[in-house]
C-alpha cells in the first residue's frame, strides 16, 4: 500500500501532480453538485469543447503559459454565449448548443493540424499532461479554487433557490440571469483550471462523476457536497498512484488522466451498490 499510494509522491514532479489533482478533484466534485442540481451536464460538456480552441490559440501565441489564458478567454466567451442562449429560450436550445460546441472544437482541431507535431500536441490538449505541472500552475489552480469556493459559499442560498424553483426565486427578487451567468462562469473557470492537467475530454468526468456518486449515497446537500469533494480528491490520488505503479512496476503504460477517470467511475459504481444495499437493508428492517 505504502509503496503504491505514498512513495511515488516523494518525487517533486509527482508531489506537484498529486497536489494539482487533489485540488482539482475536490473543486470539480464540489462544482459538480451545482451542475447536477441545475442539470447542466450537457452544457458543461459543450464548455469543455469550446474551451479547446482557446487552449490551442493560447499555446500557439505564447507557448505552454498561454494555455490558461487562452482557455479562460474562450471559457468566458462561452459562458456569456450560453447564458444568452438559454435565457432567450430558443426553440432548439440543444441544437444550438451542439452546433456551438462542434464549431469551436473544429476550429481547435484545424488550428492544431497546421502545426508540425500534430498528434503529440493534440493528445496533450485532449488528455492533458498532469506529470509536467509547474509551481505556477499550482498557484493558478489554488487561486481558482479559493475564488470558486468563496463564490459558492456566499451565493449558496440564491443558487439553491434558483436551482430548486426558478420562478419562485425570481418572484423573491433574485436576479436569475445574473445567477446563471455566475454559474456558467464558475463551471468555465473549473474547466479552464483542469484543462492542462486532465485535458478537455476527461474534465467532464471530474465534474460529473463524483457528484453523481455522492448524490447516490445521500439526499442531503450538506452531505453530498463534502462527499463529492472527497471522492474527487480520492479519485485523483488513487488514479495517479495506480497509473504510476502500473507503469513502473508492471510494465503497463497507463495514461494518468484516463486512470483517474476509471477510478472515479469505479467509485461511482461502488456508491450505486452501497445505495442499493442500504435501501435493501432498510426494507428488510422495516418488514422484520
Amino acid at each position: 500500500m505504502y509503496q503504491t499510494f505514498i512513495e511515488p509522491f516523494t518525487f517533486p514532479f509527482m508531489a506537484r501532480a498529486l497536489a494539482e489533482l487533489i485540488m482539482l478533484g475536490a473543486l470539480a466534485g464540489t462544482v459538480g453538485v451545482l451542475i447536477l442540481l441545475r442539470r447542466l451536464a450537457f452544457m458543461t460538456d459543450a464548455l469543455t469543447h469550446t474551451v479547446f480552441p482557446g487552449v490551442v490559440i493560447g499555446y500557439l501565441l505564447t507557448g505552454e503559459g498561454g494555455i490558461f489564458w487562452g482557455a479562460l478567454a474562450a471559457g468566458g466567451l462561452t459562458a456569456v454565449l450560453l447564458t444568452l442562449l438559454t435565457r432567450n429560450r430558443a426553440v432548439t436550445e440543444d441544437t444550438a448548443l451542439a452546433v456551438l460546441l462542434t464549431t469551436f472544437f473544429a476550429i481547435g482541431v484545424v488550428l492544431v493540424s497546421r502545426e508540425s507535431g500534430y498528434t503529440t500536441d493534440l493528445t496533450a490538449f485532449l488528455f492533458g499532461r498532469i506529470l509536467t505541472v509547474t509551481a505556477q500552475q499550482l498557484t493558478q489552480t489554488l487561486v481558482v479554487t479559493l475564488l470558486v469556493v468563496a463564490a459558492l459559499v456566499i451565493l449558496r442560498r440564491p443558487l439553491t433557490a434558483r436551482a430548486f424553483d426558478p420562478q419562485g426565486a425570481q418572484a423573491a427578487g433574485y436576479r436569475i440571469g445574473l445567477l446563471d451567468l455566475i454559474t456558467n462562469a464558475i463551471v468555465a473557470l473549473v474547466v479552464v483550471a483542469s484543462v492542462r492537467a486532465v485535458g478537455t475530454v476527461l474534465v467532464i468526468a471530474l465534474l460529473i462523476v463524483p457528484a453523481a456518486a455522492a448524490r447516490a449515497v445521500s439526499d442531503r446537500l450538506t452531505v453530498i457536497v463534502p462527499v463529492a469533494a472527497l471522492l474527487g480528491a480520492l479519485g485523483g490520488w488513487a488514479g495517479l498512484a495506480i497509473s504510476y505503479d502500473a507503469s513502473l512496476h508492471h510494465g503497463l503504460r497507463l495514461a494518468s488522466g484516463g486512470t483517474v477517470v476509471l477510478v472515479l467511475v469505479g467509485l461511482y459504481l461502488g456508491a450505486l451498490a452501497a445505495a442499493a444495499a442500504g435501501r435493501r437493508l432498510r426494507t428488510v428492517r422495516r418488514t422484520a
Partner: peptide
Amino acid sequence: LDPEFPISVGQVVLMGRYRRIGWL
C-alpha cells in the same frame, strides 16, 4: 418542480425566510 432535488421539506419551508436571513 424537480422531484429528485435533494432537499428536505424543512429546508424548502426555510427558503421562505432566505430574504430575511440574508446571504451568510
